[in-house]
């Protein structure tokens, strides 16, 4: 994989509190003004509000959790309660400029299907993934023999573990073009030495991919 990573800024060295959802700011920079956006698994609608405010986007959401959907509708957001696995198939082809999975693709039972649908629905697809091969994760596993997942034995659904290279490979396998990939550390864009996907795979905590089908 020869795709070059964009180094947005130097590695974050300050010790300020990390933003709750660093990938949201990166996504907001990728979305063009006035774009039509579908946020798959929009949760409390935070990204929809950010995109509406910052990008004047016409953003809509799909969310499985009923209580979260109620919260979104109370705040006047166009969110449909439903399941990405079955409902993405309903969306018309080319109906959106961007389809976004903000840390949600890894929660799906059939991520390939969802990504394929997203490529059909959107002109572009934005995916943020947590890097399971982040160096600290590796150290912890190597030194203590424990996986980072506090949720290993947690009840309910499990998030898939995927590294930045894993996702890049999936995107390539599904014939998506990686337009940009932004590494993040500590909730901020940038990671030390992260000029290539190989290095980001070690030094970045998460990454946001901008894909074109």
């Amino acid at each position: 994989m020869a795709a070059q990573l964009e180094l947005v800024q130097g590695a974050p060295l300050d010790l300020e509190a990390r933003p709750a959802r660093g990938d949201h700011d990166v996504i907001a920079r990728m979305v063009s003004d006035g774009a039509k956006v579908l946020d798959v698994g929009c949760g409390d609608g935070g990204l929809i509000q950010l995109l509406t405010r910052e990008c004047k986007a016409r953003a809509r959401g799909l969310e499985r959790d009923k209580a979260a959907v109620r919260g979104c509708v109370v705040r006047g957001l166009s969110v449909v309660q439903g399941d990405a696995e079955s409902d993405l198939a309903e969306f018309p082809s080319g109906g959106f400029d961007f389809v976004v999975f903000s840390h949600t693709l890894t929660h799906l039972a059939q991520p390939r299907d969802a990504l394929r649908q997203a490529g059909r629905i959107g002109e572009r697809v934005i995916v943020s993934v947590r890097n399971a091969a982040y160096m600290r994760t590796r150290y912890r596993l190597a030194l203590s023999g424990r996986t980072p997942a506090t949720q290993t034995w947690a009840d309910g659904e499990l998030e898939r573990r995927c590294s930045i290279r894993d996702f890049a490979e999936l995107a390539r396998e599904m014939r998506f073009n990686i337009e940009t990939a932004i590494p993040l550390t500590n909730g901020r864009p940038g990671a030390p030495f992260a000029k290539t996907i190989w290095r980001a795979n070690l030094f970045a905590e998460e990454a946001v991919f901008l894909l074109t089908p």
Partner: peptide
């Protein structure tokens, strides 16, 4: 209601669908 919401989605309409407990 879900069937209505899905049809609205398929029509590209600006739609919300909420189920009240």
């Amino acid at each position: 209601s879900r069937a209505v919401a899905r049809a609205l989605i398929a029509a590209g309409a600006d739609a919300g669908f909420v189920e009240i407990e």
